[in-house]
């Protein structure tokens, strides 16, 4: 382990360093400066936090397609709570409102899933529609600038780093995290070993809610406005965390998934920012990002398969 650790760190760093080097070589003046790196570092936290939440559900072999709708509704409820209760220490109310709403909504997800025993994908699509509709009933949320200190450095970094530590501990160092891993590995074996699978799944959804609450809090602090989605467009918010999660899975062999997700998000943001600074048209940006994701996950999966064959 002692000898392997530097090698693993090196392997993990290859990906972001390679991406950075490519764009730096192409745009040395625009891409390479410290401020660009600092901004990309900050931007990586927001999708990472959602991805950490998603990780607790997806590690169980479940899907949660409602995370975008939950983030939107939680941010709207949190902002309205803040505006209603006064603006003195408003961001505390904002945090509580966002967190409580997201956890409650994930509790609903888990309860409906456990009751109906139908695929989580169907349950969360149905509930996503309901959450979107609920958000439409409540209306837009505009957060005053003085209450959005967690949308800018260093507070967003502090909140993001705290979420990283909590996610790491919960996933790797607690009984809940171990049980999630066990159920995700084999539900039957876990059940036979005495694990209460339904409760573990419930915990997975609730932990997801915890991180989605933090993500919605940071999201409304960052953008300042949350406008409700309609016609399932909130699902678009699922894809950035999902891409980071896939890269996290791909890097799992050499790095803890929670760290891998952050690296994945950082790399995706580097790719997008690099293309923006190069003036690549938006359509091609999407194509290149998609191809990049396929390449990273494909190469990592290929490496793992080769090792198994050996």
């Amino acid at each position: 382990m002692g000898k392997g650790l530097p090698r693993k760190i090196l392997i993990v760093l290859i990906l972001p360093c390679a991406v950075y080097a490519i764009f730096f070589a192409l745009q040395p003046k625009r891409f390479g400066n410290l401020q660009t790196l600092y901004i990309m570092f900050q931007q990586a936290f927001l999708p990472s936090i959602s991805a950490w939440g998603l990780c607790f559900v997806m590690s169980l072999g479940l899907y949660d397609l409602s995370i975008g709708a939950i983030i939107i509704l939680s941010a709207i409820v949190g902002t309205n709570l803040t505006l209603a209760l006064g603006t003195g220490v408003g961001y505390i109310w904002l945090f509580i409102g966002c967190l409580a709403t997201a956890v409650v909504l994930e509790l609903v997800n888990a309860t409906v899933y456990n009751l109906l025993k139908i695929p989580s994908m169907i349950v969360t699509i149905g509930l996503m529609i309901l959450y979107e509709t609920a958000a439409n009933f409540v209306g837009d949320a505009v957060l005053p600038y003085e209450l959005s200190i967690f949308g800018r450095a260093p507070y967003n970094i502090i909140a993001g780093a705290a979420a990283l530590v909590v996610a790491y501990i919960l996933y790797n160092r607690t009984q809940i995290g171990m049980q999630i891993g066990a159920v995700g590995g084999s539900e039957i074996i876990a059940r036979n070993a005495g694990v209460r699978v339904e409760r573990v799944k419930m915990n997975g959804f609730l932990l997801c809610g915890l991180f989605l609450g933090i993500a919605s809090f940071l999201s409304v602090s960052y953008g300042g406005v949350i406008i409700p989605s309609t016609r399932m467009s909130s699902i678009l918010r699922l894809f950035p965390p999902l891409m980071g999660y896939f890269i996290g899975i791909a890097l799992k062999k050499v790095c803890n998934i929670i760290i891998g997700i952050f690296i994945g998000e950082m790399v995706i943001i580097m790719v997008v920012t690099g293309m923006v600074t190069m003036g690549v048209p938006t359509t091609y940006q999407q194509v290149i990002t998609g191809l990049f994701l396929l390449a990273v996950v494909g190469i990592a999966t290929k490496a793992k398969t080769d090792e198994v064959v050996k």
Partner: peptide, 23 residues
């Protein structure tokens, strides 16, 4: 530079920050 398909506050903030850093 230009960035298209921006319909929400958050991606707009992301794009603006990237432009500010790069230029």
């Amino acid at each position: 530079g230009e960035q298209w398909d921006i319909l929400d506050a958050e991606p707009a903030a992301n794009a603006a920050e990237s432009f500010i850093a790069a230029f």
